[in-house]
Simulated assay, not measured.
Amino acid sequence: MNKLQPQEDMEKEKTLLECFIKSDMDAREFKRAIAVRMTMAGQSYNEISKILGVS
C-alpha cells in the first residue's frame, strides 16, 4: 500500500475541496466548504463565523 505523506495528503484534500466549491451546490453546502477551506488556511472559527455570517 502506498501511503501519502501528510503534506501530499493535504494538497490532495485541498484540490478535492476546490473542485467541490466550484461544483453546483446549495448555499449551505457552499458556506460549509468555504469554512473548511478557511480553517485549512489557519483562520479562527470566530473569524470565519463573522465573515460568513453563521454561528
Rank of each mutant, 00 (worst) to 15 (best):
K12P: 00
Q7P: 06
M10V: 03
L52R: 09
A27D: 03
E29N: 08
S55A: 05
M25V: 12
M10T: 08
S23E: 09
K31L: 03
K14N: 11
R32L: 15
L16D: 08
C19A: 10
V36Q: 13
T39H: 10
I48W: 00
L17N: 11
L52C: 01
M1F: 04
E11H: 13
A27W: 02
R32Q: 12
E18T: 13
K14A: 06
E11R: 14
V54T: 01
E13F: 14
F30A: 09
F30P: 00
I51F: 00
M25N: 07
Q7M: 08
Q5D: 15
G42Y: 08
F20V: 07
T15V: 05
L4Q: 00
S44C: 12
N2D: 06
L4V: 00
M38R: 11
S55H: 08
G42Q: 00
E29W: 06
V36L: 11
D9L: 10
R37G: 09
E8Y: 01
I34L: 04
M1K: 05
R37H: 09
K3N: 12
K14M: 04
S49P: 14
R28A: 07
L4C: 01
M38F: 01
M10S: 04
A33C: 15
M1R: 14
E29I: 09
M10W: 10
E29F: 15
S23L: 01
E47V: 03
A41Y: 08
M40R: 14
F20D: 15
K50M: 09
Y45H: 14
R37S: 10
I48V: 06
M10L: 12
L52T: 08
F20E: 13
R32Y: 13
I48D: 02
K12E: 00
P6F: 09
K22M: 03
M38W: 02
Q43K: 12
M38A: 05
F20L: 14
G42V: 01
I48H: 01
D24C: 11
Y45P: 00
K31G: 15
M40T: 09
L4I: 00
E29Y: 10
L4R: 04
R37W: 13
M10N: 08
K31E: 14
S44D: 15
N46Y: 12
